[in-house]
Design a protein around this nucleic acid. Structure first.
Lengths: 143, 143
DNA sequence: TCTTGCGGTTTCAACTTGCAACCGATATTG
DNA sequence: CAATATCGGTTGCAAGTTGAAACCGCAAGA
């Protein structure tokens, strides 16, 4: 299973990424996720378990003294931020009419929208899909 | 439905993204996708139809004179490249053991691996999740 | 003429999804 | 103290989805 397919096992369903996005927004509790996403409790339960099993979320005792636990992003989970940004930017560009109002990801310091993600070569040139290729480091199957 | 959820409707399943990735690798024909991904033909058929319906792929007459059609990425589909890179980089970072050999995305011009995606503010500063927030442009519901 | 390859559709069993009801533990209210 | 509400789930079940395998129509080749 290749470097693209493997992650999809962990976050390859609709809900998991939305849960992670909400976690970036500061949500931590079962009920918060359920209210925000409006999904069935058994599904949320299964997804949270799966995300924890994959090391994307971690469970910690509730910070407010209540007897429950909270779900927080691990380092691995926080590593999903560029992917979420890429997804959001693609959505903004192609799924909204021009001038259709929608939320924006802004830099807190300035309040300005963030830049579009750019892929760069080692030397800093901005490159596109056609400038790249997938290469096996030694003699390896591609998948 | 927000800017993150909307796209998931189009590419929110395991296979669609892998099909798009293969399309970036130059695959165009039904049989090529099937051989590469090893998925059932009915599923591939349904996924291709869905991707075409969402404007991510387009069907064109076969270039080699055979009576079949080929599937090519649209502009919208090519817009998924940063997302695929983000997914790949996340996978490489967290799903492989250090030094475990795996394929790499390299800059064709130099043969060197591409840089890690970085999110930047308008002024060029590299920023992280904690430096950003989601903001509604006018008075809008977040979802 | 018979076979082969391509690009699907159809069929059907197994699995997944999601609504609704229930449950146990802890607060809260009267 | 009793009754109720809230939180964080689990269980049952019906409906939808997935996927392996078989089938099909067309065109090219032997």
């Amino acid at each position: 299973m290749c470097g693209v397919a493997r992650p999809l096992d962990a976050i390859g369903d609709w809900w998991s990424l939305l849960i992670v996005r909400d976690a970036f927004d500061g949500l931590r509790r079962f009920g918060e996720f359920q209210k925000s996403l409006g999904l069935a409790k058994n599904i949320l339960s299964a997804r949270l378990r799966n995300l924890v099993a994959h090391g994307i979320l971690d469970t910690v005792p509730a910070s407010d003294g209540s007897p429950y636990q909270e779900y927080v992003l691990t380092t691995k989970g926080r590593g999903l931020f560029p992917l979420l940004v890429a997804l959001r930017q693609w959505g903004e560009e192609f799924f909204f009419e021009r001038e259709e109002p929608h939320v924006q990801l802004v830099d807190k310091a300035t309040g300005l929208p963030v830049r579009r993600l750019e892929l760069r070569a080692q030397d800093g040139r901005v490159i596109g899909a056609e400038d790249t290729e997938v290469r096996a480091p030694s003699s390896m199957a591609r998948r």
